[in-house]
Design a protein around this nucleic acid. Structure first.
Length: 456
RNA sequence: GGAGGGUUGGCCGAGCGGUUUAAGGCACCGGUCUUGAAAACCGGCAACAGUUCGCACUGUUCGUGAGUUCGAAUCUCACACCCUCCGCCA
């Protein structure tokens, strides 16, 4: 197939990107880009995809279109003829007259009709397979680039703290508190799991609740609790299962998958739904565990809890009308940033370039938090605007807008934030020379007044 | 695990081989009336796809997939999901 999405060769632990095309089309084979746009303004699509480094095989598409058009017109002609004659049979029989002449005529259609229907089905299947490999078109303002190296920093907040001692990484800090225990986790489940104890476990819980409360009380999101397993229908987009099934944990003997992010269940809330314009925007926040097999990441981030098979995340999601999605994207990103600001964790906001933005996304901001133990900014949130791409596949629409007809909604989501990595960031940024860790001021109420975790 | 009932347009709901081109209601839109609104009355109103500059015409869709038939929401088979009762159970 000529049109191929580039895979992202980058840090995946928190990125929603590989999973963002995980939605199942209600009708298998539904194209993800607007087929009307492809038919009416193909040059614009080709130019947009070229910015991603994706080559659209125009000749192949046109050949499929021509074949489809001929077959479809002929098939529908035959169907119309059959329907008319069959109706005639009904009328004649109703009047008690002889219908054998009409029956003979309609009988002759059958074979050609069947052949045409089969051929049409075949070409439509091939066309859909072709279209499913085509990623979303980046928004015009997304900077061009080939890889993560070309992502652009749009803002930075906070100053990395100047330590008057050598800062440890979270593994050593956690061990000092007797709060992070990877040996026991390994005994229970193997590598890439963690056991938290005492104050560290409480800190982890406090972070999640602090995030939930901030998003519900201050940012207007509705808290939701959802299944942590979803059906293959939800998890298995025709293209995404083929591409991403190795990243998911599947239950043996059942068509259920452990969710890699709450985006899976929550965005599917609106699948096959026609919403009213007045009900938009929908804003949901969901705290859930996330399960990822991390296949293909052998050797990466093996130390500590940066990259785990199981981690908690507070996800924020919005379903909006198309004219509002760009503004909503800025807001949602700001909501995630607010958590880092309140916690006093230095971060920078990156806009992903055209070569790095995920398959389904039209624009993505990554938030990267400062980790003293790594002397680097590391991804802690990814906030994406999918525009109509997911909605079209999910048949998520609204009516009552300008057009009078139902049209696809726009969907957005972002981590607000990844709880495990936030715990890492707090442990590393708030560590003290004596091995204790002070609790960020904003978090103290959720810690029951505790201001410091002492060395064990 | 066992038994039974169900799945129809945005929602509710009738229809069980051919005047269904899916009744009726709700919601929604427009109009009459009214100082304005409500009520009442009149009219409109499924989605998706194709051909077309457009008017319009055609096709597909009644949980999903196969089948029977000239013709299927309606008949047959398989599957999925929901509900009720029994059993088991945190």
């Amino acid at each position: 197939m000529a049109a191929l999405a580039r895979s992202r060769g980058r840090l995946e632990g928190l990125s929603a990107a590989p999973y963002n095309c995980g939605f199942v089309p209600s009708k298998p084979g539904t194209a993800m880009l607007d087929i009307q746009l492809l038919r009416k303004d193909l040059p614009a699509v080709i130019a947009g995809l070229a910015r991603r480094g994706v080559t659209f095989d125009e000749a192949a598409f046109r050949a499929l279109e021509d074949e489809r058009k001929g077959l479809q017109v002929r098939t529908e002609e035959l169907q119309a003829k059959r329907n008319a004659l069959s109706r005639q049979v009904g009328m004649l029989k109703g009047k008690g007259e002889d219908a054998s002449a009409v029956l003979a005529e309609v009988g002759g259609i059958g074979e050609e009709l069947k052949a045409n229907e089969t051929a049409l089905g075949s070409v439509q299947e091939r066309q859909n397979a072709f279209l499913r490999t085509i990623p979303n078109i980046p928004r015009a303002e997304v900077p061009e680039g080939r890889s993560a190296d070309d992502n652009v920093e749009v803002r930075r907040w906070g100053e990395p703290r100047a330590f008057d001692f050598a800062p440890k990484d979270h593994v050593d800090v956690g061990a000092g508190l007797a709060g992070l225990d990877f040996d026991t986790a390994a005994k229970l489940a193997g590598a890439r799991f963690s056991v938290l104890r005492g104050g560290v476990a409480r800190l982890h819980r406090a972070l999640a609740q602090f995030m939930l409360d901030t998003h519900t009380r201050e940012h207007g999101y509705t808290e939701v609790y959802v299944p942590y397993m979803v059906s293959a229908e939800c998890a298995d987009g025709v293209s995404s299962l083929a591409k991403f099934k190795d990243d998911l944990f599947k239950l043996e003997g059942r068509d259920l998958y452990l969710i890699p992010t709450a985006e899976y269940p929550v965005t599917n809330f609106v699948r096959d739904t026609v919403l009213e314009a007045k009900d938009l925007p929908l804003k949901f926040v969901c705290h859930s565990p996330c399960f990822r097999s991390e296949a293909g990441s052998y050797g990466k981030d093996t130390r500590g809890m940066i990259r785990q098979h199981q981690f908690d995340k507070v996800e924020i999601l919005q379903v909006v009308s198309p004219e509002n999605s760009a503004r909503a994207h800025e807001e949602l990103t700001g909501h995630a940033e607010t958590i880092l600001r309140k916690l006093g964790l230095p971060f920078r906001t990156m806009v992903l370039c055209t070569g790095d933005v995920g398959f389904s996304s039209a624009k993505t901001y990554d938030l990267e938090v400062w980790l003293p133990g790594q002397d680097a900014y590391r991804e802690i949130s990814s906030c994406s605007n999918f525009e109509a791409f997911q909605a079209r596949r999910m048949q998520a629409r609204f009516k009552g807008g300008d057009k009078g007809k139902p049209e696809p909604v726009h969907t957005l989501n972002g981590s607000g934030l990844a709880v495990g990595r936030t715990l890492v960031a707090v442990l590393e940024n708030y560590q003290q020379a004596d091995g204790s860790v002070s609790v960020p001021e904003a978090l103290v109420p959720w810690m029951g007044g505790v201001t410091r975790l002492d060395k064990a």
